[in-house]
């Protein structure tokens, strides 16, 4: 009974945060809502990162390549057939004739993300530490390079225009909640717990017969599916190109995870929402806003400076992130009869 109450809180608090952000958005004007929708998509991406990085303790710089692949899948398949020749003149025949709806495109994006992550993970999950970091970085570089120039599978250097913009507030919130629930179920499952054990003490986990390689591969594939899914949601929000799915997004999403607290689901959600909030506020301030009679007009680029500084400060003062890497728990008085 008590265990299930703990689980409810562990899942409930992050999910409620997402729902609260979506509800808060309805108060604002249509143009401001865009920032909230963007923040919810960020939650989906950061939760995908968390599913692997948080549980395994291995930093991956390559997850944005799964997001990019998901975006490409959903984007290419949902541009109306009549408009495909205009933005993707060199598209392969099968892709030119196939067009699917919103939900199937998201499902396919998740499937492609998972398949690619599995393919990449099969060799790469043998590595750890710095070698893993550099190798995943290599995956990002290669994916970016290929998507940029291979025009048979997408728009190449062009921007994904005329993808139906189905990601409104409802879809963004629903998808963020789906990502949170999947990550939660995974981390409470046997596999998630075993992977966390390898993170805490690799030698001890191996001594009781855990295959670190297998556990990391499972998490990598799951997190690739979530990342591809988030990429699909993202491309339905705004027209993307390869540059939008590269180093800057890698940086900002990693920053969100680290600022929130790498080792907890709550941290991923809090980090994504907090940094998106600060970032959106600064973005509007770059265009000039007036707050309580003050005219604020920041120079372009301030937001990256502030986010970068924020991340450095959080890392120095609270290396475990805002949440300290802990999940939400019941307050002490509510834990009836629990042992100290």
């Amino acid at each position: 009974m008590r265990r299930s109450a703990g689980a409810v809180v562990e899942l409930g608090v992050p999910a409620l945060l997402v729902v609260a952000a979506a509800l808060l958005a309805t108060v604002f004007s249509h143009s401001t809502q865009t920032y909230f929708i963007n923040a919810l998509v960020n939650v989906a991406i950061v939760v995908a990162l968390y599913a692997f990085i948080g549980n395994s303790g291995v930093v991956s710089f390559g997850h944005i390549s799964f997001v990019a692949l998901g975006a490409w899948t959903a984007g290419v398949l949902s541009v109306p057939a009549a408009e495909k020749p205009a933005i993707m003149p060199n598209l392969a025949h099968g892709l030119r004739t196939t067009t699917v709806g919103n939900v199937p495109s998201l499902a396919l994006a998740a499937a492609v993300g998972a398949a690619f992550a599995l393919l990449v993970g099969l060799p790469l999950m043998r590595l750890s530490g710095l070698a893993a970091g550099i190798a995943t970085f290599g995956v990002l570089e290669i994916t970016h390079n290929i998507l940029r120039y291979w025009e048979k599978i997408g728009p190449g250097l062009n921007t994904f225009s005329s993808v139906p913009e189905t990601t409104g507030l409802t879809q963004a919130a629903a998808c963020a909640v789906i990502a949170v629930v999947v990550a939660f179920v995974y981390q409470r499952s046997r596999y998630g717990r075993v992977l966390r054990a390898t993170r805490e003490d690799a030698a001890a986990a191996r001594a009781v017969g855990v295959s670190m390689y297998m556990q990391r591969l499972i998490a990598f594939t799951l997190s690739g599916a979530l990342a591809g899914f988030a990429g699909g949601v993202y491309v339905h929000l705004l027209p993307l190109n390869t540059e939008a799915l590269y180093l800057d997004l890698t940086f900002i999403t990693l920053a969100m995870l680290v600022i929130g607290g790498t080792t907890s689901l709550l941290g991923a959600v809090v980090g994504a929402l907090a940094v998106s909030g600060v970032d959106s506020f600064l973005a509007t301030a770059e265009n000039g806003v007036s707050i309580a009679g003050w005219n604020v007009d920041l120079p372009a680029g301030t937001r990256v400076v502030v986010v970068g500084a924020l991340m450095a400060i959080v890392l120095i003062l609270r290396p475990l992130g805002l949440t300290g890497g802990r999940e939400a728990t019941l307050p002490r008085w509510a834990r009836i009869g629990s042992a100290p």
Binding site: G57, V58, V59, G129, L130, G133, F251, L254, A255, V258, G308, A309, M311, A312, L315, I316, P319
Partner: peptide, 11 residues
């Protein structure tokens, strides 16, 4: 090392 790498990323 991971925390420090991410920190230099921020810098």
């Amino acid at each position: 090392p991971a925390v420090m790498l991410v920190a230099t990323f921020a810098v």
